[in-house]
């Protein structure tokens, strides 16, 4: 056997070893997810009952329910959607279709959005606390929570909406302009309808991120343990991640168990929203092909 052949054998051996190693890496990553889901299911499924979903929290784990947090999260996210989607999509339209790409304002916006996307979520909580909660004296209210979450996910919505608008073929946009249709009517007539699936997918994913956020809400004074339902914009409120945090922080095993049930509720909602987003994305992908 020549030296080359010997070396070739080794090269093949290293290659195979590397392949196995990478495969193990993937398996480990996937195994973590399976373990996590299984572990939470195992701990939480027994206490995930109808009573749990429809009761107020309680100092006794056996009687405690999640209703105010469930309702709070849903209302919070609905408000966040109402604020963040118009702002985000509007900004994306401005960036892609109005702004002069060479202007300072455009460059500032781009840089700003890129940097905001990397700001830790807890810092948005500080913003909410200082400006909305204290300066505007709105306190630890539902509206402050939604504004804070809206600003947090705004960069994500802007970026995904921009991508969706960019993906609209310019030939179609030119077709509309060439018919003497104004810019805004071109936007509402062809651009937004074509970009809508992409905008929706991005917005849903951003909102589901907002739904899992606890840190910024804690900073603006929200708490987990609330025994009433929010009834106006200035109400105090709870949210799913907050009550999960509250229960997790307690030393008793029984609370750890219902925390797992709370996580299951949260994860089921997230699974539904994420699946919706993926379905919308796949549907439109196949249509464009």
């Amino acid at each position: 056997m020549t030296r080359y052949q010997k070396k070739l054998r080794m090269r093949h051996f290293y290659n195979q070893a590397f392949k196995v190693l990478l495969f193990l890496v993937i398996v480990v990553s996937l195994l973590v997810l399976v373990t996590l889901l299984f572990d939470i299911f195992r701990k939480g499924y027994q206490t995930l009952t109808w009573n749990f979903l429809t009761s107020m929290p309680s100092g006794r784990a056996a009687r405690a329910g999640i209703l105010p947090s469930l309702v709070g999260s849903l209302v919070l996210i609905a408000l966040t959607a109402l604020i963040s989607i118009p702002l985000g999509v509007g900004t994306a339209i401005y960036l892609e279709l109005y702004a002069n790409r060479r202007s300072r304002f455009f460059k500032l916006l781009q840089l700003n959005i890129a940097n905001l996307a990397g700001v830790p979520s807890i810092v948005y909580g500080i913003l909410g606390l200082a400006i909305f909660s204290q300066m505007l004296k709105l306190g630890p209210s539902l509206i402050v929570g939604s504004i804070t979450l809206s600003l947090l996910i705004l960069p994500v919505i802007i970026v995904s909406s921009s991508e969706a608008i960019k993906a609209v073929p310019s030939s179609i946009i030119d077709g509309s302009y060439a018919l003497g249709v104004t810019r805004w009517k071109t936007i509402t007539g062809v651009i937004l309808p074509m970009a809508l699936p992409g905008i929706l997918t991005g917005s849903i994913l951003a909102l589901s991120r907002a739904m899992g956020e606890a840190a910024p809400l804690i900073m603006v004074g929200a708490v987990g343990f609330v025994t009433f339902l929010p009834d106006n914009l200035l109400s105090r409120y709870s949210a799913l991640p907050l009550i999960v945090f509250n229960w997790t922080s307690r030393p008793q095993e029984a609370f750890a168990q219902i925390a797992a049930s709370g996580i299951m509720v949260m994860m089921i909602i997230l699974l539904i929203t994420n699946l919706t987003a993926i379905i919308i994305r796949n549907k439109t992908q196949s249509r464009i092909d």
């Binding site: 073929p169 030939s171 179609i172 030119d174 077709g175 509309s176 302009y177 060439a178 018919l179 003497g180 249709v181 104004t182 007539g189 062809v190 309808p193 074509m194």
Partner: peptide, 21 residues
């Protein structure tokens, strides 16, 4: 007024570009 102008002077492009409607 380019909007009025383009209404009066139509354009047909190299590749057909119907709207997705």
């Amino acid at each position: 007024d380019v909007v009025e102008l383009r209404k009066r002077i139509g354009m047909v492009f190299q590749k057909p570009n119907p709207f997705p409607k």
